[in-house]
Simulated assay, not measured.
Amino acid sequence: MKILILCTGNSCRSQMAHGFLQSFCPDIEVFSAGIKPTERVNQMAIEVMKEAGIDISGHEPHNVSEYLDASWDYVITVCGGAKENCPAFSGMVKHRRHFGFDDPSTADLLDLQQTMGEFRRVRDEIKARFYSFYLTGLCGKECS
């Protein structure tokens, strides 16, 4: 099973989804990429995932162009920008899904505590949505 998770910058939401989905089943091949990838994964995303017991500190943003010729069981967009600007894949894509989440990196908040709270809220939404997807769509197909 091969899954590609797309976001605009590949620095927050797609990286968190990648980390969670991989943690649910190590046998699933999970990749993430951005339409306009940033230079590095957002440090606050790394921190809130660490709080959840998942280390994404070794992840790096990738450009979706690296994956256009591959075949995918699922291509999942996690933001409106990626959904609207998703390029055409020349490889086979069996299923496309969109699970939209707010971008915590653009939250206009006053202090670090509020900003981290927004990252935690989005992290928890991502975990719940991808766990539901895993249970209903993938469970038993790759992992026992």
Rank of each mutant, 00 (worst) to 15 (best):
I3P: 09
L4G: 04
I5G: 09
L6M: 14
L6V: 15
C7D: 11
N10T: 12
C12L: 05
R13V: 03
R13Q: 05
R13E: 10
S14V: 02
S14K: 04
Q15F: 02
M16R: 02
A17W: 01
H18F: 10
G19Y: 06
F20K: 04
F20D: 04
L21W: 07
Q22P: 00
S23Q: 08
S23R: 08
F24L: 13
F24E: 05
C25G: 07
D27T: 11
I28V: 13
I28A: 01
E29F: 07
E29L: 12
E29Q: 14
V30G: 07
F31E: 11
R40H: 05
V41R: 09
M44H: 08
M44D: 11
I46K: 12
E47V: 00
M49P: 05
M49K: 03
A52N: 06
G53Y: 10
I54L: 09
I56H: 02
S57E: 05
H62P: 01
V64H: 08
V64T: 06
E66C: 02
L68F: 09
A70W: 10
A70M: 15
A70H: 12
S71Q: 04
D73E: 14
D73N: 14
D73S: 13
Y74E: 07
V78Y: 05
V78P: 05
V78I: 13
C79N: 08
C79W: 04
C79E: 10
G80C: 00
N85Y: 09
C86S: 14
P87D: 06
P87Q: 09
P87F: 06
P87S: 04
A88G: 03
G91H: 11
G91C: 10
V93K: 08
V93N: 12
K94V: 10
H95P: 00
H95W: 01
R97I: 02
F99N: 00
F99Q: 01
G100P: 06
F101D: 09
P104Q: 08
S105F: 01
S105C: 06
T106E: 15
A107Y: 10
D108C: 02
D108T: 04
L110N: 07
L110W: 03
L110E: 13
L112Y: 13
Q113A: 14
T115C: 05
M116I: 13
M116T: 09
G117Q: 08
G117T: 05
E118M: 11
F119W: 03
F119M: 03
F119T: 03
R120F: 01
R121A: 07
V122C: 08
R123C: 05
R123S: 03
D124R: 02
I126L: 01
I126H: 03
K127G: 00
Y131F: 11
Y134V: 03
Y134R: 09
L135G: 00
L135H: 00
T136R: 12
T136P: 00
T136I: 04
G140S: 07
K141Q: 15
K141R: 15
E142A: 14
E142W: 04
E142P: 00
C143A: 03
S144N: 08
S144R: 12
